[in-house]
């Protein structure tokens, strides 16, 4: 008989805590504060959750050294496995390239240009990495870049890490913004049938009230409507691959619907 120990129903008992002023910014004016609410919400959870054991189980499993066969031959042993939670809220500065992220909030894509070698960086660099330029300052040399670019490479994801799983399936890639020399990690809002290296895209932004100041605020859509992938395109040239991928995408949509109750079918999300 399998014992189900430690699986009592749990609720997160959050004790409200009184926040003091943040000492580290004491001597520096906060020009804009959109994080008070986040701290008030998260800090009690952080203080409650850290290192708290939420439950345990006893697992009877193989043990000891040697080969797979050796381990499976021994009578199994019982191990106690605890569940311990941890959270944290990180307050992280975007540094000298902060203007890029403030630009995202305003629906702009910005890059920096090296005053020495002329390289245009998007993602921006505050200092040039070209060894010839001897760490030249680029942080006062911002450019507004056009909201157009070219797909440098891409993938179509049917699996993702925890924070992004609910968005599946989706496509990400690296886009060279027109005028920039480096490429920007970008979500590609377009059907896999249309994606190819060299495709011209436009950048669009999520609605202003939903922008948070990271690369999830911006995404790329096709610059040319109903553009067919050229016959050399590595994904579409193999019709069978394309079909397998489309089946996988459908299965992924169903998985997400089941797991999160979210409908990510193209009709629902609009691409």
């Amino acid at each position: 008989m399998e014992e189900k120990e430690g699986l009592k129903e749990q609720t997160l008992r959050v004790r409200p805590i009184k926040r003091g002023a943040e000492k580290k910014y004491r001597d520096y004016p906060t020009v804009l504060d959109k994080s008070t609410e986040a701290h008030e919400f998260w800090e009690p959870i952080v203080h409650q959750g850290l290192w708290d054991i939420k439950g345990h189980k006893i697992v009877k499993g193989p043990w000891g050294g040697g080969s797979v066969e050796d381990a499976k031959k021994r009578p199994p042993r019982e191990f106690m496995v605890i569940d311990r939670a941890s959270f944290a809220l990180y307050s992280h500065s975007y540094g000298l390239v902060s203007p890029f992220f403030r630009g995202l909030l305003e629906g702009k894509l910005m890059g920096t240009k090296c005053p020495e070698c002329g390289t245009v960086y998007c993602p921006p660099r505050a200092h040039c990495w070209n060894p010839e330029c001897r760490v030249a300052d680029c942080y006062d040399n911002w450019m507004n870049l056009p909201l157009t670019g070219i797909i440098h490479t891409f993938t179509v994801q049917c699996l993702a890490a925890a924070p992004f799983e609910h968005m599946l399936p989706f496509s990400m890639g690296y886009v060279q913004v027109d005028g920039a020399d480096t490429t920007l990690p970008t979500l590609l809002h377009m059907r896999p049938r249309e994606i190819f290296i060299g495709k011209k895209v436009k950048f669009e932004f999520v609605p202003e009230e939903k922008r948070k100041g990271d690369l999830m605020d911006v995404y790329a859509v096709p610059a040319i409507l109903d553009e067919k992938a050229p016959e050399w395109a590595c994904l579409q040239k193999d019709a069978e691959q394309m079909k397998v991928l489309e089946d996988s995408i459908k299965a992924t949509q169903e998985f997400i619907k089941k797991r999160y109750g979210i409908d990510n079918s193209p009709e629902e999300r609009g691409w």
Binding site: H92, P123, Q157, A160, A161, F170, P185, D214, L215
Partner: peptide
């Protein structure tokens, strides 16, 4: 984590 992680994180 500022640039690559937020896009798909994988």
């Amino acid at each position: 984590t500022d640039w690559d992680f937020p896009v798909g994180g994988y």
